[in-house]
Design a binder for these strands. Structure first.
Length: 414
RNA sequence: GCGGAUGUAGCUCAGUUGGUUAGAGCGCUAGACUGUGACUCUGGAGGUCGCGGGUUCGAUCCCCGUCAUUCGCCCCA
């Protein structure tokens, strides 16, 4: 079978897949709009620097997962691995400092050069929500509330839990980081290979290690709460209070650490156990230093991204396809009349199926396969009387209906 | 990037301890039923057994490589 194959880690979205996909996207868009988040889009690629600077040179995404290429002019470009950096760049490029809070929703394809697995692809799609320019804990709460509403509406909340943690402000985080490096450096020989490299790359990650030896060391490691300054502690408390107020349940996870450099304060993930190792379905956090890193004025921000493919795998109540009405000519003499009727009904907003060929039996079978709600048969008999035979395909009953009454009959159907 | 599993019709899978024409169900298609679907019955099409190489008189089956999928690690949505 040497048929052409899609590139590794990429997938076609055939109509049925696309329907699930679109349902996730449309649901998210509608709910985001209710909370005041308008949709926008940024280009699918940016100068490499935009991602390298914001996500951190040592992050996995930047160090080994970017799809980068050089233009003819010799500039390095990168297919976006996430949405946040691009939206923040756009916020700066368009001088939107005066528009805060800048609340936006976005969606589209992302690219990461990773080993594919279920729920993990090289080209995948994300929905994304950002609230830029709001330092208040209320923004954190709102952003999480949008995520919760989307999961609820998609019917996946039962299999998801919200894990939440704080990484503190820059001061707290660096103090803790230093303490961790000091502690683990003293035990470096006992660390797993992975964690040895984490020690320089992202020491907080060691807390998250699945290695048994590492976990034993983590037991006695410094605790983050001891290093959080007063402001950070109060800020996080306010976020949790806000979630309580809205009845949004969460699990405090002191080991939750995110891989990207730009996160501060609130970090959260909605995780599921139903997708193997790919647990996160919506994840995000606060990134108060990001805009400054990109060369903008210091501006706080918070947001999240959700994996559309992952959500589509879990979504339960995907609406069924629209059921059409089939128009079926009986005999060649009726084809023209049927064609005009089908056209008119479509102009009237009705979804109509009319096959290009076939006798009545074939056409009925086709109508059935497309789960048509009703069939409208027109033959010479009916033509003479300006009528049609209207067959209800669910009930299996039929009657003659005058063409002038057809619209009313169709309206009764639903 | 590292380790394990898998790869036979459009789909889900049998099968061959290496030996003449590789099977089933579903689906597709034609007909029984040239003005009526979902049920039933009878035919038909569709596979160089992922791809390449090796061993062999002979490979879909054994060996090596490769590509893809999948599970775990890393990491993440």
């Amino acid at each position: 079978m040497s048929l052409p194959q899609p590139v590794r880690g990429t997938h076609d979205l055939l109509p049925e897949d696309f329907r699930r996909h679109a349902h996730v996207r449309d649901t998210a868009r509608d709910i985001a709009a209710r909370f005041g988040y308008a949709e926008m889009a940024t280009p699918i690629f940016e100068f490499t620097e935009v991602f390298a600077r914001t996500m951190g040179e040592t992050s996995d995404v930047v160090s080994k997962e970017m799809y980068s290429f050089e233009t003819r002019g010799g500039e390095s470009m990168t297919l976006r691995p996430e949405y946040t950096a691009g939206i923040c760049r756009s916020f700066i490029s368009n001088g939107l400092q005066q528009n805060v809070p800048f609340k936006v929703f976005a969606n589209g394809p992302m690219f990461r050069y990773e080993r594919p697995q279920k729920g993990r692809q090289r080209q995948f799609h994300q929905i994304d929500l950002e609230c830029i320019g709001a330092p208040e804990a209320k923004a954190d709460v709102e952003v999480i509330a949008v995520a919760a509403s989307i999961l609820q509406t998609l019917g996946v909340m039962d299999s998801c839990t919200l894990q939440i943690n704080t990484l503190g402000d820059v001061e707290s985080r660096q103090a803790y980081r230093a303490a961790l490096v000091e502690y683990f450096s003293a035990h470096e020989a006992d660390l797993s290979e992975d964690s040895k490299s984490r020690l320089t790359r992202n020491p907080l990650r060691i807390l998250d290690s699945k290695d048994k030896g590492d976990q034993a060391l983590v037991e006695n490691a410094p605790v983050f709460t001891d290093y959080l300054n007063e402001f950070s502690t109060e800020f996080f408390a306010e976020v949790l209070e806000g979630l309580d107020l809205l009845g949004i349940t969460y699990e405090l996870n002191r080991r939750l650490v995110r891989g990207l450099d730009y996160y501060t304060h609130t970090a959260f993930e909605y995780v599921t156990t139903e997708l193997g190792a790919q647990g996160a379905v919506i994840a995000g956090g606060r990134y108060d230093g990001l805009i400054e890193t990109l060369g903008g004025k210091p501006t706080p921000g918070i947001g999240w991204a959700g994996g559309i493919e992952r959500l589509a795998l879990l979504a339960e109540n995907v609406p069924a396809i629209d059921r059409p009405v089939a128009v079926i000519p009986v005999g060649d003499a009726a084809i023209q009349m049927a064609t005009k009727l089908a056209h008119q009904l479509r102009l009237d907003g009705i979804s109509v199926e009319m096959a290009f060929k076939g006798n009545v039996g074939k056409r009925m079978k086709r109508a059935n396969k497309l789960s048509a709600r009703a069939a409208i048969l027109i033959g010479e008999d009916e033509l003479a009387r300006n009528a049609c035979t209207f067959r209800d395909l669910d009930a299996g009953t039929q009657e003659e209906v005058k063409l002038s009454d057809l619209t009313a009959t169709l309206a009764n159907l639903k």
